[in-house]
Simulated scan of single mutants.
Amino acid sequence: MKKLLILSVILCVLNIQVTASAAFWNVTGEKMIHDPSIIKEGNSWYVFGTGEAGKNGIRVLRSDNGVNWYTTPVIFPTAPSWWKTYVPNHESNQWAPDIQYYNGRYWLYYSVSSFGSNNSLIGLLSTESITSGQWRDDGLVVRSTSSSNFNAIDGDLVIDKDGNPWLSYGSFWSGIKLTRLDKNTMKPTGTVYSIATRPNSPNNAIEAPSITYKDGYYYLFVSFDRCCQGVDSTYKIAYGRSKTITGPYLDKNGVSMMNGGGTIFDAGNSRWKGPGHQDIYNNNVIVRHSYDAENNGMPTLLINDLYWDSQGWPSY
């Protein structure tokens, strides 16, 4: 009996360890990515991310099992001429794509800008099938200029509880914005709301919104502080929630995200530095990049199962 009891305890411990480690996807193959957005079409997973510096296009990774990833052709190997009308000195690579399925099509929002500038735009592509590789250029969605108090990058498509599409976006300046989209054009219509800002942080270091709806709440995930500095990056993921999509979003302590609030979700560790630019899929998967201290600070794809506690707060 004692031996059986000991064996039972050991099995329970092993089960706990397996359960805890299973939350982290053991990603293999091509893992270099920045600002990832994830989706599944059929049996295939896709991650869209910022293009490699100095090269044209949006980076695309594919996996047929969610574990082993490989590269597929970039989107925009040649830049459309209309971008220069709005952002004359844009960088060759495009930033922070967001992919979502809605109303029979896959919608891909992306950013065109130059580092440190808010002379920027968010553009839109769409397709009936990612696997087909055939994308329709749906043009300009929103833009900002050097005289704007916001930055038109980091677009994130969210569908509210009633099936209406919205776009959140923003980086530094006056923070995170939200606007309703027309169901047919998937472009803004009506009011622009401010939903998160950090007035007491240097340069209002908040960006990369991602909103998801679950059990009566909208959850706003954002990235705080600085990306893009390898292992010296200070990026971290924070969140809050609201009963209405336009806010106010409050963190666990009840502090509004319009007043610098935000509960930290992931601040990294000794290996994974500066995790951020997160994307939520199906309320049970979270993807982000982090800089690998064991691989020269390479921006690396991290995927986890996403959990929710009894009070409705997210964890992994």
Rank of each mutant, 00 (worst) to 15 (best):
A53V: 15
N89V: 05
V112Y: 03
Y110C: 04
D156R: 00
G133Q: 14
Y110N: 07
S117N: 13
N93F: 10
Q134H: 07
N119S: 07
S147V: 14
Y70L: 02
I130G: 06
S147N: 10
A152P: 09
S147H: 02
N149D: 11
S92A: 14
W69A: 08
F48K: 07
I39G: 03
I130P: 05
H90V: 02
K55D: 00
N119T: 12
N68A: 15
R136K: 04
W82K: 15
N103M: 05
I38V: 13
W69K: 15
G66A: 06
G51Y: 01
R105G: 00
R62S: 15
I99C: 03
R62Y: 00
D138L: 08
I38K: 04
T50E: 00
Q100M: 07
F150S: 15
D64M: 08
Y106V: 01
S111D: 05
G155L: 06
V141C: 07
P88A: 13
R62Q: 14
D35W: 12
K40F: 05
N93S: 12
N68V: 12
A152D: 14
S114N: 15
N151V: 09
P80F: 11
W69I: 01
G139P: 07
V112I: 06
N119K: 13
A53P: 09
L121F: 12
T72L: 06
N89E: 13
I58W: 02
P80A: 09
A79M: 14
E91F: 01
E52D: 12
G133Y: 11
F115L: 02
A53K: 08
T72P: 03
V87E: 14
G51P: 01
Q100T: 10
W69T: 04
Y46M: 00
S114P: 01
T78I: 14
Y106A: 06
S146T: 12
V87L: 09
H90G: 05
N151T: 15
G123I: 03
I153M: 11
Y109G: 11
F115M: 06
L157M: 13
G139A: 03
S129Q: 09
F150V: 14
R136V: 10
N103V: 06
T145C: 06
N43M: 09
L157S: 04
S114R: 12
Y70E: 09
Q94P: 00
S147K: 13
L121N: 05
V74D: 11
L121V: 08
T50V: 05
V67S: 03
D156H: 15
N56P: 04
S132V: 10
V60K: 10
F115R: 08
T72H: 01
S120N: 11
T50D: 07
N89F: 08
Y106D: 00
A152V: 05
S113I: 10
T71H: 06
V158F: 01
T50L: 10
E128Q: 14
T78C: 03
R143W: 12
